[in-house]
Write a protein that binds this DNA or RNA. Sequence first.
DNA 1: GCCTTGACTTGAACATTGTGCAAGTAGCGA
DNA 2: TCGCTACTTGCACAATGTTCAAGTCAAGGC
Lengths: 232, 232
Amino acid sequence: MPRDTLTRDQIVQTAIELLDADGLEGLNMRSLGKRLDSAATAVYWHVKSKDNLVVLAGDQVWDEIELPDPAAVGWRAAATSMATDLYAMLTRHPWLVQALASHLFHGPAKARHDDHSLAVYETAGFAGAEADQAAATVFMFVLGNALGESATAALTRRLSRDGGDAEGVIRDTMARATEVAMRFPRLRARIEAAPVADYGAAPDNSFAFGLRAILDGLEARLAARRVGRDAR
Amino acid sequence: MPRDTLTRDQIVQTAIELLDADGLEGLNMRSLGKRLDSAATAVYWHVKSKDNLVVLAGDQVWDEIELPDPAAVGWRAAATSMATDLYAMLTRHPWLVQALASHLFHGPAKARHDDHSLAVYETAGFAGAEADQAAATVFMFVLGNALGESATAALTRRLSRDGGDAEGVIRDTMARATEVAMRFPRLRARIEAAPVADYGAAPDNSFAFGLRAILDGLEARLAARRVGRDAR
DNA sequence: GCCTTGACTTGAACATTGTGCAAGTAGCGA
DNA sequence: TCGCTACTTGCACAATGTTCAAGTCAAGGC
C-alpha cells in the first residue's frame, strides 16, 4: 500500500474550500495543513508559496463556467449566459475578486474562458481588436459588479467570525451610512423611497439592466458598421 | 507652544502616501509611525484599527474627483468626465480597488460623488431606480477596469520591492502566459497579431470603447422611452 | 506657582502568520 | 539489505497587528 501522499490537486481543492468558507485572509497554511491531515509546511513541497497557491486556486474555478455555443443560441444569448455564469462564479468565490486585484492570472482555465469569450464576440461580427474590446467591456462590467458582492461577503464573514453581536454591527453600519447619505439630496430621496436599504450593495436588477444596456450598445455599433459597409 | 500632537487628518494623509507608494500590504503601522515621527502604537489613539484607517483613507480620495455640471456640458459629457476621472483616481490609488473588494465604504466623500453621479443620470432623463441602475452600470464598468490596473500595479510593486531581476521575472511571467495562450486558437491569433503583448492588461482603448458603447446603450434606452411617451 | 486632570505617547509585550531548514521516514529498485 | 528519491515533520525566525500599563505634557483652577 502506498503511503498516502499529498497531491497538488488535492491541496488546491482543499484551498478552494477553505477560501470559500473563510475568505482570502481566512486561509492560512496551518489550518490548511490541519484540513489535509499533514503539517502546514508539507504544502511547500508541492507549491512555491501561499500566493502561488492562491493563483492556482484562482485559475481552477474558471472551469466552472459553461461555454455556450454562439452559433446555436445566438451571440447575444451566449454573451448573456457567459456574463451571468461568470457573475455567479465570482459570487460563489468572492476571494477571487480580491485576488484578481492583486495578482495576474494567466492559467489555462481562465484562458479557456477568455478564448471562448472572444469566439462569441467574433460570431457577433466584431473583428480583431474590436472583438477584444467588446469582450473586455462586458468582462469589466461583470468584474465590477462582483467587486461589490465580494465586499459584502467579506463583511458578513468578519461578522460571523468575530461572533457575538452581528445584528448590532450591521444595524450600526447601516445607521452610520444612512446618516451620511441623508446629507445629500438624491441619496436621501433614494433612502426615503426605499427605507429597507441593504448595506451598500448595487441597486436591484442593476446587473441585468446594465448587461442589457451594454449589449444594446455593442449591437448598435455592429448595426452601424453594417450600414456603413452596405452603403459602400 | 503646544506640544505637536498627531491629528487624524495628518495620519490619514500620510497613510495615503504610504499606500500609494507601497500598496495595501506594504502599509504597516511601524513604518507609518516612523513616517509620522512617533511610535507605531500612537496611531491607535486616533484610529480604531488598521482596517479603520484604510477605510478612512479610502474615503478621502473620492474628493479628488471633479463634479462637472451636466446642465452646462450635457449629461453625456458629464458622465464621460466622471467615469474618466474615477478611472484615473483608481489608477493613482490602486490599493483602493483592493480595499473596495474587502470593505464597505460609506464615507462622506464617496457619498458626494455618488450623489452627483445620480444627478447626472437624472439630468439625462432616467427617473428613480433607473437613474440608480444607469449610474451603477457605468460605475461597475469603471471599477472592473481599475481592477486590472490594480493587479499590474501590485505586480510591479512586488518586483521593485524584491529587487534584483525584475526584467527576468516579467519576461518569465509573459513567456509562461504566452505559452498557455498559444494553446487556444483565438488567443494565439491575438498574440501573433500583436507580439509585444503587455502582461495581461486590457486591450488598447478598451476603456474608451466600452464607455462609449455603454453610454450608447443607455441613450438608446432613453430614446426608446421618449418615443413610447410621445406616441401615447 | 503648584497641582490635578485629561489628552495624548511610549515601550514592552503577545498572538498570528508565512516560510526556511535540517532532520526524519517511507517505499522502491538493485 | 542498501541506498536513493520523494516526500514529511518540527523547530525556529521574522514580520506585523494590537493591547496595556505606565509615562509625559499642557492647561485650568486654586
